[in-house]
Design a protein around this nucleic acid. Structure first.
Lengths: 107, 107
DNA sequence: GAAACATATTGACAATTGTCGATTCGAAGC
DNA sequence: GCTTCGAATCGACAATTGTCAATATGTTTC
């Protein structure tokens, strides 16, 4: 599963490209996950401990864990286990690839 | 409902921004709608008649109509009724705004 | 206005999703 | 090895979604 996809406005997506891009966009298309992402991205150190997220997001620990794994599975967040805590960072290049896929052609 | 949102990586999204951005991304997060979008965007004239879409997408007419209205409601496509046919164009500025919302900070 | 045809709406249904409580897994420290 | 505590998984449930067949709406032409 590599960096998907060429801009949607450039050429007609085939079924596979469309499915792949849809899968990644779906991972982002949830308010809790978007806030989660922005919390990690905007944190001073660029990383956040999972332990702080239930309070910040006002969701239960299992729910937060579920959303975290969705974002990791989609390649948007990266998980790093340090001792008993799990830390998360944004994979900017993946986010950037998605932004490019949506960017209209520079015509 | 205006152009949403500032980049997710720039500042922590509040609930409302997150919900609005999620709503728009959700409109894109489907393979049929992504192919639909790319068909319209990549068409030589920049527009496409709804009448051609069921065949191109291999979906029933009601299903295509459903997806079209999702994209229009999200502000990503624009509908133009000309006689008995409905023509669709991409609202590039909206797509561009979404791309910007995902673009990581230029750090 | 009646017929023809393009598109939207309705109704139904299976599949997926977001959520939480309860439980399990796993790593540190004793 | 046992305890502690952070995080993942399980089970359940309501809500949403993608799909199509059937029907309705709207526009053009006769």
């Amino acid at each position: 599963m590599e960096f998907c996809c060429s801009p949607v406005t450039e050429a007609v997506l085939d079924e596979e490209e469309a499915a792949d891009l849809a899968r990644q966009l779906k991972a982002l298309a949830d308010p809790v996950r978007l806030r989660l992402l922005s919390l990690v991205a905007a944190s001073p150190s660029g990383e956040l401990c999972a332990c702080d997220l239930p309070a910040l997001l006002e969701r239960s620990q299992p729910t937060v864990s579920h959303h975290l794994s969705q974002l990791v599975k989609a390649g948007i967040l990266e998980r790093d286990q340090r001792g008993k805590w799990a830390w998360f960072t944004v994979r900017s290049e993946r986010l950037s690839a998605l932004a490019t896929a949506l960017q209209p052609a520079t015509t």
